[in-house]
């Protein structure tokens, strides 16, 4: 039964990593830029959810504050692209990477200035509630995280596989030039990608705050999500989610069965192994252009 509990908590944190990794991959595919602020955007989403929901702040009902947070984070992603990223289009990848790293710092300090540096907890309806199943104690928050992630994944799958706009976004990420030629408004598609990445970060933050404490440096776990994206093969959406789950599962199990201190090391050992044995990641999509 202990195994089951470890599995559940691993899956739950894996879902959060996976959603952040999804944000990395989406933006990378659409704009060929890596948004190192994705983890900090997640932190920001968490704080906005807390700010809207908690009794000490706005005290809105949870079911109302979540859609509001999604709107805010969507607009937030849109504005970041418009104000900052669009200025550096055509610059080198390093310039864009440094810009997003700086954005991450700025977000961390803004969050610290507004909400302080002590840990915050989300007062969600799931807090402290458990389900008892054959002697196992399962946190309702963790089950909530997994269910929301599954629903979101299904939604995203349908969007990218079935809707015209979704296919156009995939198309533009595969061949930007050809997207121009068939009349897809590529710039608008890139804005939309940032909106979706903002929303994903917001939902990841909401889920993260539903099962643990949040402070301004929480966003640094974006590094683990980055590792997840690399393990999955940067550029593959299902790969990002599965990479996230792998990292999420490794942590509680290595924490339980390995000597103390090693649990934080193992995800990166896996990352290095994947990079050595399968440099393109587990689920890479490599296309060859025919001449």
């Amino acid at each position: 039964m202990e195994l089951f509990q470890l599995l559940l908590s691993g899956l739950a944190s894996g879902c959060v990593y996976g959603l952040i990794a999804l944000g990395f991959v989406l933006i990378y595919k659409a704009t060929e830029a890596i948004n190192f602020a994705q983890g900090d955007m997640m932190m920001f989403g968490a704080f906005i959810t807390i700010w809207l929901t908690n009794s000490g702040y706005n005290n809105l009902p949870f079911l109302f504050s979540v859609p509001l947070m999604i709107l805010i984070m969507g607009a937030f992603g849109f504005l970041i692209e418009r104000i900052f990223l669009r200025q550096v289009i055509g610059q080198s990848q390093i310039a864009i990477a440094i810009l997003t790293i700086a954005l991450g710092f700025v977000l961390r300090f803004i969050a610290g200035a507004i909400w302080g540096h002590e840990p915050h907890f989300l007062e969600s309806p799931m807090v402290g509630k458990n389900i008892y199943l054959n002697g196992a104690v399962l946190g309702l928050a963790e089950i909530f995280v997994i269910i929301v992630t599954v629903l979101l994944t299904v939604l995203l799958y349908f969007f990218f596989a079935k809707t015209k706009l979704g296919i156009a976004m995939v198309a533009a990420s595969q061949n930007q030039l050809a997207a121009f030629y068939v009349g897809i408004p590529v710039k608008r598609v890139q804005s939309l990608t940032w909106v979706i990445a903002g929303i994903l970060a917001g939902i990841a933050g909401m889920l993260f705050s539903a099962k643990g404490s949040v402070d301004p440096i929480t966003g640094l776990l974006g590094i683990k999500a980055f590792a997840a994206a690399v393990i999955g093969g940067f550029g593959s959406l299902p790969g990002a989610l599965i990479g996230g789950l792998i990292i999420g599962l490794i942590e509680p199990f290595s924490g339980r069965y390995l000597p103390s201190g090693f649990s934080h090391l193992v995800p990166y050992i896996v990352l290095v192994l994947v990079l050595i044995l399968r440099p393109h990641g587990l689920f890479s999509q490599i296309s060859h252009k025919k001449v």
Partner: peptide
């Protein structure tokens, strides 16, 4: 040089 969308 064609420029199709390779993975679609």
């Amino acid at each position: 040089g064609r420029e199709v969308f390779p993975m679609l």
